[in-house]
Amino acid sequence: MGERQSDGGLAGRASRHALLDSEVEALIAASLIRDGVDAEAEQRAVAAFRAARDDGAHRTRTRLRDDWRPRERRRYLGLSLRTTLGVLFASLTLGGVAVAAIGAAGSPADGPDDGRGHPPATSGTPSDPARTPSRGGDPGRPSGTATGSAPTRPDRPAPAQDTEAHCRAYQQVEGRGRAMDATAWQRLVDAAGGERNVTRYCAAQLERSTPEPKPTQSGGSENSGASENSGTSGNKGSGENNGTDKGQDKSTPARPNGRSQ
């Protein structure tokens, strides 16, 4: 500060002598904040508090403007360019991955797709089971995702593949931007049965969809090539309960073995 002033003595004016922000802040705070409170004013406030408390006024509902918990504040921060870009990026990513999944599923999986494209027998299954979060957790129950709505839209990738693609996208965009706004994302949340379940649901999905060496080799070795074939095409060949409905024509006996090991 001293040298600044000696400078100033020579050169003169304001522009040369802008203070640091912290100095201004300290000066303003020191000037405007007076320590200590007026006892009388405090008594009035406390009396008002007492009256309100005794009237039961304090048992009132919290309005939005009364909620100052930190989460709220952070959400407030998010109204920015970054958010917009995040949503754009997420939707592009989700879309791109979904397209890639269609391409990948189309070619190598022709065989199993045939077997799987028309299980009309199971088309009556309501699609609701697909929305239950316990889908992967209950091995005894036939899973509805793959069969529930696939027959109604033969030109689209099965919803399970959709889901898988979304799960992959989710892992990629996780923590960046607000992918939550994308429609595809909402579908994934529905399928998982709630936002909180998405991570677990996706973990189950992806685990199921990646070809597992152990069941294929041990259980599938006694088996025909059908199970390995399906293993290459995403979630269809996975050793889990997807097999219960669609795998009946191919490798029913092998599946339970593979799973039990």
């Binding site: 004013a41 406030a45 008002a48 309100a52 009364d66 100052w68």
Partner: peptide, 25 residues
């Protein structure tokens, strides 16, 4: 400030948050 404190005293039950939040509120 006196007016404000009357309102703060009355609506205190509605407030949710920590010390920093209370400053803002």
């Amino acid at each position: 400030a006196s007016d404000a404190w009357l309102e703060i005293a009355r609506d205190l039950g509605r407030f949710k948050g920590d010390g920093a939040g209370f400053r803002g509120w």
